[in-house]
């Protein structure tokens, strides 16, 4: 998954990872080390530029994550960069993700607050302003409860819109809303990869080698189109995997996955 996220990062852009996202932190460092050496890597929470942390910590506003940074942005500069169109890519997730890439990290329950989620930080602003957005979740697969009901991560509708995708709840496009960024272009999950069609709807474009299309269907709360060129996700090299393991000796990123997902293994390139 880290490799799939890394593959969405173009060389030569300014990319920013938020906090609470170890998979993304690792993906950015992997991309910078491989195909995107000229990326301006801005770290979430410290706003350090091009840091070289000795190991990943479970907390992102930590000097560990800031070691080796060439300089630092302040909070207003970081968000100004996005608002003025200089932030090439941002990475967002949600406890609910809808077919247009709208995300909810604020609350579950519409009329009555059932579960207060931590909140979206600056994700709301950046979902409008960043040029491109990569959406990710490591919890696409859902387990049915005793009555066979599933609480989907990829849902038909979000209970609250924390950050915006391609269409608002009343069907307006990003252009109609005046957002400067182009919106999400990928949803990376532990089951597969979606891009977005011309209508702004998530479209399945790749599957991991051990996942069937029906598995994605039964774990997704909306019907989705499938790309004509549906492919199998490319696999990272052994060196890349080694790099990730060395950067995350405390295995912080594994905390994002359910125990059964951690048991999956893939042949490396």
């Amino acid at each position: 998954m880290i490799y799939q996220i890394a593959r969405t990062i173009e060389d030569g852009i300014l990319a920013f990872h938020g906090f609470g996202s170890p998979l993304v932190q690792l993906a950015l460092h992997l991309a910078k080390r491989t195909h995107a050496p000229r990326m301006v890597l801005v770290a979430g929470a410290t706003y350090g530029v091009n840091p070289n942390p000795p190991f990943l910590t479970p907390t992102s506003n930590d000097w560990v994550m800031d070691r080796g940074a060439e300089c630092h942005l302040d909070i207003e500069e970081l968000f100004d960069l996005a608002a003025s169109g200089r932030m090439g890519r941002m990475f967002l997730s949600g406890l609910q993700i809808d077919r247009f890439g709208n995300l909810n990290v604020t609350r579950l329950g519409r009329d009555r607050l059932q579960l207060k989620l931590p909140g979206g930080g600056g994700g709301c602003n950046l979902s409008c302003d960043a040029v491109h957005v990569t959406i990710w979740t490591a919890a696409h697969r859902t387990t049915p409860d005793a009555k066979g009901r599933r609480r989907f991560r990829l849902v038909a509708d979000c209970d609250f819109i924390t950050s915006v995708g391609h269409r608002t709840t009343d069907g307006k496009t990003r252009k109609e809303m005046g957002y400067r960024g182009e919106g999400p272009d990928r949803i990376i999950t532990e089951l597969g990869v979606f891009d977005f069609d011309d209508f702004g709807q998530a479209r399945l474009t790749a599957l991991y080698p051990d996942v069937e299309i029906d598995t994605v269907r039964e774990n997704t709360g909306f019907d989705f189109p499938v790309s004509e060129s549906l492919s199998v996700t490319p696999m990272p090299s052994a060196e890349m995997v080694e790099f990730i393991r060395a950067l995350d000796p405390l295995k912080i990123h594994e905390r994002e996955f359910k125990p059964e997902e951690r048991l999956r293994s893939f042949p490396l390139v």
């Binding site: 608002a83 909810n104 604020t106 950046l126 609250f160 819109i161 915006v164 957002y179 400067r180």
Partner: peptide, 10 residues
């Protein structure tokens, strides 16, 4: 003034 937030639950 700013550009973001319109169209969200906020």
């Amino acid at each position: 003034p700013m550009r973001s937030v319109l169209g969200t639950g906020f």
